[in-house]
């Protein structure tokens, strides 16, 4: 039997160039605002941040020329209610996905929001496009975005009382779809 080739394994490169970030640079730039840096599924870089330092982190990522994440891809949320390790303090997770057009890199920020106080600072002062996306997250999950210029529902009607993507809302609703006035009763 021949000896195994004596080569040390090369560090694994991410499959996509946009995930190939300088992690040390990110850690040093964000400093205390960063709770944890995770390389998640498909080598995507996830920055776990506290609610209080979310805006600081976004501001740094947006403004710093070495990072320059100028484009907001999406804001969404996750309801952890049906998770096995569910705790009310970790009910929601607000997710910001941002992209650097200059460096062609992408990161995801995850912020935990408790059930009792479902609020999160609005990113609309940093990313103008965040305002409408946050309206959708508010509509679907009931998360209040502090400092938002105009936090109204965007998908469901204004009179709607629930936040449909919460896991404790039944998929067929609570009878809203059956309670319209018949056209002949209106006339």
């Amino acid at each position: 039997m021949a000896d195994a080739p004596n080569t040390s394994p090369e560090p694994k490169k991410p499959r996509l160039a946009e995930n190939d970030l300088n992690l040390e640079l990110l850690k040093s730039k964000l400093g205390a605002a960063l709770l944890k840096l995770e390389v998640a599924h498909a080598e995507q870089v996830v920055l776990h941040v506290a609610r209080e330092s979310l805006l600081d982190a976004l501001r740094t990522l947006h403004d710093d020329p070495a990072l320059s994440f100028k484009m907001l891809t999406d804001i969404t949320a996750v309801d952890n209610l049906k998770r096995e390790d569910f705790e009310p303090t970790r009910r929601f997770k607000v997710v910001h996905i941002i992209y650097s057009l200059e460096h062609k890199k992408r990161v995801r920020l995850e912020t935990l929001v408790p059930e009792q106080d479902p609020t999160c600072p609005s990113a609309s002062a940093i990313y103008k496009g965040a305002a409408w996306i946050e309206r959708e997250v508010f509509d679907m999950f009931g998360i209040q975005f502090g400092g938002h210029p105009d936090l109204r529902r965007v998908l469901t009607p204004d009179y709607y009382e629930y936040h449909p993507l919460r896991k404790d809302y039944p998929i067929t609703g609570k009878g809203e779809r059956d309670n319209f006035v018949r056209s002949e009763e209106l006339a």
């Binding site: 039944p170 067929t172 609703g173 609570k174 779809r177 059956d178 319209f180 018949r182 056209s183």
Partner: peptide
């Protein structure tokens, strides 16, 4: 679409 925003048949409200 047996879901909360979907009207289950418009004939409930118009002829």
């Amino acid at each position: 679409f047996n879901t909360y925003p979907q009207i289950q048949g418009v004939d409930q409200f118009i002829p």
